[in-house]
Design a protein around this nucleic acid. Structure first.
Lengths: 241, 241
DNA sequence: GCAAAAGTGTTGCTAATACACCCATGC
DNA sequence: GCATGGGTGTATTAGCAACACTTTTGC
């Protein structure tokens, strides 16, 4: 299982597709929030000056999700509410020059956190549904992450990870609508969400609209999510093995 | 993205969990076939003399699924009907001594192929539901692969990949029953299988039982399977990118 | 004929959908 | 009051599970 290394060899990198819900660009004249993701500007060839997924080489004694979380903190200063391995990309042609195998994670960040995301000259948030040509095969990777996100939102209960600690059912429904790209019946969505048993009603309400105040709910972490990898629930804001 | 290497560094390996349906061991007194997988005997430390998943280091210019297919051919001499990436395992403690990140694939082999699998002193087929202690974290990996297989069989149409080119609906149903570990209603299974639109009736029938002959069907490859990774349908007997 | 599996028909339950309707707040 | 979304009730429908029943073979 040990491999003798000579000159040029295969590099191993860990990168992360980070999704957050942000108020839509005023220019786009759409009231609802949309999915955004932070990208880093490359400062050398190949793909100099292109945007790329945050990531980097795996630390010598570092576990894979730890590396993903580290790059997430490094680029955005944020803690994800959800983190899951996406796929390993290793096509020899995906990186000109040096061969690189990338293990990709994807993450969801809540609106509370996302509001205080750090930005800089070389880090920028771009809308997930309208990206420029990215470095390497990163457009393909983002598309695949979006596909997985839509799948998970449809049959799982992770949408809350894009909101804050508490949220109204209308807010949760809006997340589903934005991710899935379709309108959902408020009455039926409410029933399904409550029937899933993953939500806990709080005593608080959200006031301020020109209408009846909405009850606030929080997510019950006692429920496990599907397909978090073989090591059990990888995520949910704490722990890092 | 380039990484300077010094002395000890991280190894990258590709291994494959290979499933095939084989007639059950006469000792077990069960008439139905069960899932078996080929394992290779380790001939050195760590885990000397333990059974391990077939695999090895990634070739310098070799794509990941190509490496998986190569180790599959090397250990069994077989061509898989289905091949999909499972997960990347990278816990620093999973391999004593040298740090190894393993990208695992899982594969399904048809009964026609499996019948002429090569065996040797250091390759043995063992029943998936009754494995000894394997090398490294390979028990965990096999369990995860089994979980994925059961999931896929339940909501997708891949079970045919464990059979031959043509098969009766009863044979297909038996595959589902063995994988899921529960009895299924023949009438309802038939309707669902046919309604999926993935099966094509042939003019042939399977005779020989003390009962009415059963029509033979084949799988229609025009249908795409879900979650074959971002690169589209990875598999179905040919192609290797 | 008889056993056994192939294959078809029918019924009843469950769950999702569509949509009508009442409730409570801001203005 | 009235507009607006929060929240509840209910009829319709689609899909699935259960199971009775007919068909065609081997012996």
């Amino acid at each position: 299982m040990t491999l003798r290394r000579d000159v040029a060899t295969t590099d191993l990198a860990v990168s992360t597709v980070i999704f957050a819900l942000r108020p839509n660009d005023p220019l786009r004249r759409r009231p609802e929030p949309t999915l955004w993701l932070p990208l880093v500007r490359r400062l050398r060839e190949p793909y100099d000056d292109h945007w790329a997924l945050p990531g980097g080489p795996l630390g010598a004694e570092e576990d894979l999700p730890v590396a993903a979380r580290r790059t997430l903190v490094a680029t955005t200063g944020l803690t994800p509410k959800y983190l899951e391995q996406l796929y390993a990309f290793g096509n020899p042609a995906r990186s000109p020059g040096q061969r690189v195998v990338s293990i990709i994670y994807w993450a969801l960040v809540g609106t509370d956190e996302a509001a205080r995301a750090s930005v800089g000259q070389n880090v920028r948030w771009l809308p997930a549904d309208d990206l420029p040509a990215l470095a390497f095969d990163h457009n393909l990777i983002v598309d695949y992450a979006l596909w997985r996100l839509r799948n998970k939102v449809a049959y799982s209960r992770i949408a809350h990870a894009l909101l804050g600690q508490t949220f109204t059912l209308a807010e949760l429904r809006q997340v589903h609508e934005v991710v899935l790209g379709e309108q959902l019946d408020p009455a039926n969505f409410r029933r399904q969400a409550l029937a899933s048993g993953t939500l806990v009603a709080t005593d608080d309400k959200r006031t301020g609209g020109r209408h009846r105040p909405a009850r606030l709910y929080r997510y019950s972490d006692t429920e496990t999510l599907a397909d978090n990898g073989p090591v059990g629930p990888l995520l949910l804001s704490e722990e890092g093995s």
